[in-house]
Design a protein around this nucleic acid. Structure first.
Lengths: 179, 179
DNA sequence: CCTTTATGCGTACGCCCGTACGCATCGTTG
DNA sequence: CAACGATGCGTACGGGCGTACGCATAAAGG
């Protein structure tokens, strides 16, 4: 049996969990669904992640890490004197014209922390990292947090209403809040 | 059997559904849990709400209506020349020092629309009503939407991180975005 | 080479679930 | 007052679930 030795199985299970949440939502996350998606037996998922909460934590942890890595790259590559409002509006447009399902998945996992104390520390740490990253551009913590709030709020508005994203409207809002 | 005639049963079932979501989250919403909470037999919930989605829609509809009624009252009672930024920051403080569980419940139901198409129209209509209400104060749709986004984003930040709410920081952010 | 430990595998138990369905009973309408 | 539609009630079916557990096998260490 070739798969008896499978050093990357744990990672594959996490990827499968993210895929399952993407397809069926958090409510559809189950050991069995993940096992089927990862093509491993049921016992294997419960071995690596004893409870569903463990699986959820691992999934959010990975999604957050990928998001933060993207943001770091984005911040590093942007010219130091580029107007932040332009950058934020452009980033939103990029996200909204990209993989919509992925974006919804990311917000679903992130917002799950509202009610699940197990993942709340992850969401809090993620927000801290985002603030820290924005502070590098704004120099002001309060402004950084306001930008972050505006970003989440406007993105949610588009996702919830299906309204078309207006880049200039977003840019103007960011510009005002940046001061 | 006294309860054989029970004209308000449907309403009691909706209230029970909201209570169940408040206690166990959307994932814990089930016909059986609602029936137990409302103290009605199982068949009664399935009669009034054939599917769980119907129940969810009714619950969000009611929560949204109550929220909007509160907001209407708030807008009507505020002096016409009062600075909007002060009002919004004060409103946030009131919500955050009030019933926290209720606030989490409201956002959970509202954000459920991210992935559930059945309730998405409700969330979209709710956002439209909020925008309309804010436009009465700002006179500008874009500013109204930005305020709404900032409001949701900052509230979520506090709920997710557990950080203490800073009323002056919020007021300043609203003031900047109001222009 | 032998033991130990981590990992993989299959299965079984008991629970909760959505849904369907038939019967009972009420209010209403003609 | 009769009939009918709306509502209330109880139960049963099939299915998915988390979890536990025992056995098999691989890698690692003496």
């Amino acid at each position: 049996m070739g798969r008896r030795y499978d050093p990357e199985r744990r990672q594959r299970i996490i990827d499968a969990a993210i895929a399952v949440v993407g397809e069926r939502g958090i409510g559809g996350l189950s050991h069995r669904a993940v096992a089927a998606e990862a093509d491993v037996p049921l016992g294997s998922t419960t071995y690596h992640f004893a409870t569903l909460d463990d699986l959820l934590v691992a999934a959010l942890d990975q999604v957050n890490a990928e998001w933060l890595a993207d943001m770091e790259r984005w911040e590093r590559d942007a010219p130091p004197d580029a107007p932040l409002a332009d950058g934020m509006a452009g980033l939103m447009e990029m996200l909204l014209t990209g993989d919509r399902k992925r974006l919804e998945l990311e917000y679903e996992l992130y917002l799950a922390a509202l009610r699940r104390t197990s993942v709340r520390p992850l969401a809090a740490a993620f927000l801290d990292r985002m603030t820290e990253l924005l502070v590098r551009r704004t120099g002001d913590v309060d402004v950084a947090r306001a930008i972050n709030a505006l970003f989440d709020g406007m993105l949610l508005q588009v996702l919830l209403t299906g309204r078309e994203f207006d880049r200039e409207e977003a840019r103007a809002a960011f510009a005002r809040v940046t001061g």
